[in-house]
Amino acid sequence: MTTVMLVDDSATMLMSLKSILTKAGYSVETAEHGKQALDKLGKGVKPNLIISDVNMPQMDGITFVREARKAPGMRFTPMLMLTTESEQTKRTEAKSAGATGWLVKPVSPDQLLGVIKQVLPGA
């Protein structure tokens, strides 16, 4: 089963993305911020895809991606950032930190599932 890890400090965002993904048959792991997500990765959670917010307390999304790339088995895992239209520079930063791409909030189910298809071969 394909597992998607969602990292966002907004419970609303987590809830909305999770419901879309669960309905589409994905297994979902959630974390409220980068540190918690890294903890989970350290404890053997192996998502096939990570979707993370940029602005979060404790550890921001870009630092998280940079760190997550170093986690075991995460070298080639697609990682997408949740951004707003105005966060152009963040996208560039995120890419150089190892992010695959980004989603623009608000994320519609079609956009979300479409991007997963795009970045996950065989999904």
């Binding site: 907004s10 909305s16 602005n55 707003t84």
Partner: peptide
Amino acid sequence: VFRAAHTFKGSSGLFDFPELTRLTH
């Protein structure tokens, strides 16, 4: 404060409240 406003805007976009999104934006 920025982060709170930012999160707010992000979530508000999930609903059809364009004025809310514009104001928080």
